[in-house]
Each structure stands twice: as structure tokens, then as C-alpha cells.
Write a protein that binds this DNA or RNA. Structure first.
Lengths: 345, 345
DNA sequence: AACAGTTTTGCACACGATTTCATTTTAGGG
DNA sequence: CCCTAAAATGAAATCGTGTGCAAAACTGTT
């Protein structure tokens, strides 16, 4: 019953290569490990035979003994969002260049699944995990993942005294003050006085932090606090709520959106349905600087989160932790800056 | 030197759980396998102890003996593209619901890396692989991946006699005639006579197939063949080339874009820089129906590739193949249809 | 030619689970 | 109370690879 054809369907192993090349199985292992000492001619022979047999070392077996899976887990709430997918793209590219494969997980909007998901992910033994403050409770993160030290992307209140002096894991903190100050200054310079803040998902730490910082900066510049337009980061909600606000709520002459996609929704509502001009009647600023923001229909002035900078910082954290697993937690910070286009002045 | 603190940093194993619960290691294994026969009270005890010890079965070890990695590899050229990311999102969600994790790889634009990438991916022993015709040569796919049967998403010429009667692997074929016929009919109905085809990447099979089919359908309806505007699926190129064509090339009154993002670029070029109205002066149709296509600034009429339908078909193929690895290759097909919005009439 | 030092080699074990298979325990029926 | 069928149990083999260690092979020097 051991049909050789079926048997042939399975992968080649190091043993088969060894037997074919008339060497020991250990030699095969060494041939594939650059740092192992093996006679060069022997290595060449083995690699040649391996190629003929279409042999590739089994990462699962390898990871069991080395303790390295070469997997990095990434947890994202919505892969299809422009910002999320652009970050995922940058991160996957960077990881791949370092020899890691991306293990992708998608959360639901609520946090109800986070424990199940993390537990499941843990089974794959990722060398590192990138999680975002919005999607996973930090306590769950710390409890479930004991082996891989996760990286937590957060948006701290830069001015507030950080209570958590000793973070549980490596972090990337995004400092949003600078970009927000530049944006408010620009809008004020062009005459904006009554601001609205178009929110993101209410349970999102990023949007909460952005709103607090906008309020603070407005106060510092002697401007009244912003009115609040509800939102959830989506175009449709932003469109609808902007419409609603301009028809029923207090008039405003500037909108600070929690993300670019929301800003697009607001702009389209203003122009298409309300007959208002951007930037002449209402000034709009977004957050993220996704690719779409420079599209001519929007040409959005926005607070940029530099993707390259973020990605490099995350990669540094991962590699450092892998090189020295017991080193104390480190927090990297990245800043933000305004990208000026056509929706303010 | 065997510091218990350091030892403690590593994951709990089935042995530890067994010892703590005073059962055999085999029992622990059975407790986690729903189909295994084990006394319910015993299973409960083990699961309780496992939770206390924060134990999760190691997928790598499990996969070695079961032959199932619970990984599905996906190869994408550009995760950040709207269409690609929306498909990735749908696929990841569906796979996760079936207990698979997504192993994500990103290709460069050219095909030079495909062998290296596939070889690398093979090391992880994915249970299945989803590859797109644009990114990977089918011959490479067949040669490298011997264990996991890949799924190849292609765009066959529906009318041509399919030479490859016996495909090498499972396929998802996208039939584009129907949507294209509807689109051409609609544009012709509103008076369009001289068409342009705004191309995608020239080495993309999807764009080649779309172009051939557009030519064919135009001919069938007694219309002149389309002029060709070069493109690469990006907004910027579409914008620039559309501008260029309308300034120097033959005049057209309809643009059939190979993808939605390209259509956006064309629309913005027409409206912003050329002072032309869409749809009054020029009619535009895209391909894909990404989320952004219903945004008011574009409100694009487009040929929809139904994501749910695609995802379900892919999932069916994967599950069928896993249940019966030796069954002959199967090809599923999905169709396309026009979504009418505001850029034609 | 003998020696010391370095490189190369291969055996045996470890990694963390699952799966026969033979054995013991339990349950059910007369 | 006994017998039989079904369910539960654990010992041992297995998956494919990397690594410690001791032996072997090589290198170059006196």
C-alpha cells in the first residue's frame, strides 16, 4: 500500500539528499547553514543535489530546535483600509528583506476576540508580534504571549506624565503634537476660527489622543474648543455625519479629521451636497497621508505619519529584541509633520 | 547555569501540563483534539490546568506529525493597492474562520524573484498557496511547490479554445466578457463611438485579457478598435498618460480603464486639467469595483469582480484539495457584471 | 617524521507534539 | 454475577531538523 507515487508527492527530506549525494545527513544541514564549517566542494555538491531533488529545509522542524520560527505576527483590524494596507505593505517588504515571513491576522472591530486570536497566534511561535493599541488589550498581550515579545504601537499623551514608566514590552510611540500644531497654525493663519473634530472609532486610542491634542493646541492658541462630529474612520460615516452637522449643528469653518479617509468623506459632503467650497468656505486637514491624499480630487493637506520611519523603527525593535531577548523594554518614538496641499489655503 | 527564570521564559509544553495535572502527555494531546476519545472530566481538568500554565499546542511540532501546517500562503505584488488589499482582507477573514493563518509574501513588480520567493515559502509548508497569474510563472509554481497544491487565479480568453485542457493545478478563472459587454453597450447607448483602453501593467495577464476582450466586443458591435493609453494600474501614470493622450493623440469620447484606480487618474486629468466633463464629454468605465469607486468625487461606473464570490470559490478549492489531495485539478469560474454609477450617462 | 593546532566529520540526542497499537477500564445486558 | 462490546489509557515510534561532543582528517612547522 505504500505507493511510491504517493510517497513521491511528499517533500524531499535532508535524508534523501544525503543518501543521493553520498554524504551524512548532518552535512546537508551544514550545507544550508552559512556559518557551519564544511568543505566548500562538499557544500556545492550538496546544494546541487538538493536543487535537483527540489529540497528545501523544513522551517517547522528547524524552528523546533533553533527556537526561531522566522515568522512575525501582525494583527490588523481591517486589512483593506488604505492606511492599514499601506503600513502592512511596508512592513511586509521590510520583514521579507530580513528573512521573516509575515503571519497575518485580522481582528473584528470589537476587542472580544483578542484573547482567542492571540492564543491562536501564539501556537505558531512567531519570533515577534506587532499589535496596535486599538485592537488588542495590552494586558491580554502581556499574559498570552510569553515567548515572543510583542511590539505595541501607541499614541501617548506627550505632555501628561506617563504613569506607566516601565512598559511591559517594546513600544513604538507616535508623537502627534508637532503635526497637529503645524496644522492648526496653518488653518488659523488662513482665518479659521471655529473648528470641528471629525472623530474616528470612539474606542480607538489614536483618535482619542488626536482629539485631546487638538483641544489642547486650540486652547493654547486662544481658540474655542472644537465641536465634535462623530465618525468611525470610514468614508460613508464621515460623509453622512458631516452633512448632518452642517445642516443642524453649529457652523464651523475648519474640520480636523482623525484620518484621511474621513477627510475625503467630509470634503465630498461639503462640495457635492452642501455647495460649500474647500478651502475657501471650509478648511480641511486629515491624518495619515495615505497615497490617495495627493489625488487631484482631494489634494488633501494632512498630518503625515512617515511610513518609512515607522517601519524602520519597528524593525529595529524586532531585531534588537531577537539579538538580546532579555534586554529591558525599549520605546522608540516617531514624530509627525504637516504635508501642505490644497485643502487649507 | 540553567536559570529557572530564563527557563520560565520559554513556553509551557504538553509535558509540563501533564505533570501538573497528573496525567500522561498523550492525554493532553487528546484533550486538545475534539475528535479524540477521552473522559470529559479529564479533558476539563487538563484544559483548566493548561489555561493556568498558559499552554498552547505548538503548531510547528503538530504540523510535523499531522502534515497540516494550517498556513495558507498568499503572494501579492503590492499589498497597498486598494484592490489587492481588499481581496487580501476578504481572504484572510475567510481563512481565519476556517482555522487557517495567512502567510503573506510580497513580490517585486518583475518576475525575477518568483523562484526565490516560492522556494522560501515552500519551507513553511503551507497547506495551500494562492498565487496570481501576474506575479508568478505557472511553470515555476508547478516545479517548486510539490506538496501544497497551489491555486492560480487567471483570466482566460473565454472564446479561444483553451489549449491547456489539463491544468497543472486548481484554478480560479475570471470570465470578463459579460461585464465588458454590458459596459460597452451602456457607453454606446449614450453615444460613445471612439474608445480608448487605458492599460494596466503590460506584463499583467489580467490587463492583456481585458484589452483583447474589449477589442473583440467593440468589433462585434461595429465600433472601431480602441486607441491605447499606456498605464501601469497607478493613479499617477493614468493621470499623466491621459493628459498626454488628449493633448497629442486621437480624440476619444470614452475610456475603458483596466482598473478603477487608473480610471480615477483619468477622470481627474479630464476634469482638473483638460476642462472636460465626465460623463458629458467623456465617458469612463473602470474595472474591479473597489470601495473607493462609490466615493462621490468619482462615483465610477465599473465592471465588478465580486469579492465574496471570488473568496468563496477560492476557499472551496482549498478545502476540497485538502480533503482529497489526489483528486484531479478543478477549475472554478466567476463572472463579472457592470455596476452602473455616474461616469457614463 | 613527529607534533601541535585547526578544520571537518558523524553519532546520538533534543525539540514538542500526534498516532498506532495493545492493554486496561468502563458500561450494558441477560 | 458474568460476559461482551465499547471506551479510555499509556508506552513507544515518528515527523525533519540543528547542535554538542569526541574522533578523524587535514594543515603547516620544527
Amino acid at each position: 500500500m505504500s505507493d511510491p507515487a504517493i510517497r513521491n508527492r511528499s517533500r524531499a527530506t535532508a535524508d534523501m539528499v544525503a543518501r543521493t549525494a553520498n554524504v551524512s545527513r548532518v552535512a546537508v544541514s551544514r550545507a544550508f547553514n552559512p556559518h557551519a564549517s564544511i568543505k566548500p566542494e562538499k557544500r556545492d555538491l550538496i546544494l546541487k543535489v538538493a536543487q535537483e531533488l527540489n529540497y528545501t529545509p523544513d522551517m517547522a522542524a528547524r524552528s523546533m530546535v533553533t527556537g526561531r520560527s522566522h515568522l512575525v505576527g501582525i494583527i490588523v483590524p481591517d486589512v483593506s483600509g488604505p492606511w492599514e494596507s499601506q503600513e502592512l505593505d511596508a512592513m511586509t517588504t521590510a520583514l521579507q528583506a530580513e528573512g521573516f515571513a509575515t503571519l497575518l491576522f485580522r481582528t473584528r472591530d470589537d476587542l472580544s476576540m483578542d484573547e482567542t486570536l492571540l492564543t491562536y497566534m501564539k501556537g505558531f511561535n512567531p519570533d515577534s508580534v506587532i499589535a496596535y493599541a486599538e485592537n488588542v488589550r495590552p494586558t491580554t498581550l502581556a499574559r498570552v504571549l510569553d515567548r515572543a515579545v510583542p511590539i505595541y504601537v501607541g499614541y501617548p499623551d506627550e505632555d501628561a506624565a506617563e504613569a506607566e514608566a516601565a512598559p511591559l514590552f517594546d513600544r513604538l510611540d507616535v508623537l502627534q503634537r508637532e503635526g497637529i500644531e503645524q496644522a492648526v497654525a496653518l488653518m488659523q493663519g488662513y482665518g479659521a476660527r471655529r473648528f470641528a473634530f471629525l472623530a474616528g472609532k470612539t474606542n480607538s486610542l489614536a483618535t482619542q489622543s488626536r482629539e485631546r491634542m487638538v483641544i489642547k493646541v486650540l486652547a493654547e492658541r486662544g481658540l474655542p474648543p472644537p465641536t465634535r462630529i462623530p465618525g468611525d474612520y470610514t468614508y460613508d460615516t464621515a460623509y453622512r455625519e458631516t452633512l448632518n452637522h452642517f445642516r443642524l449643528g453649529e457652523p464651523v469653518d475648519a474640520i480636523f479629521a482623525a484620518n484621511d479617509v474621513g477627510a475625503f468623506g467630509a470634503i465630498d459632503a461639503l462640495r457635492t451636497e452642501l455647495g460649500l467650497r474647500v478651502p475657501q468656505d471650509v478648511k480641511v486637514v486629515g491624518f495619515d497621508d495615505i497615497h490617495q491624499s495627493h489625488w487631484k480630487s482631494y489634494n488633501l493637506t494632512t498630518v503625515k505619519l512617515d511610513l518609512t520611519e515607522r517601519t524602520q523603527a519597528l524593525l529595529r525593535l524586532i531585531l534588537r529584541r531577537l539579538k538580546n531577548p532579555t534586554s529591558p523594554s525599549l520605546t522608540e518614538t516617531v514624530s509627525t509633520r504637516l504635508v501642505v496641499r490644497g485643502t487649507v489655503g
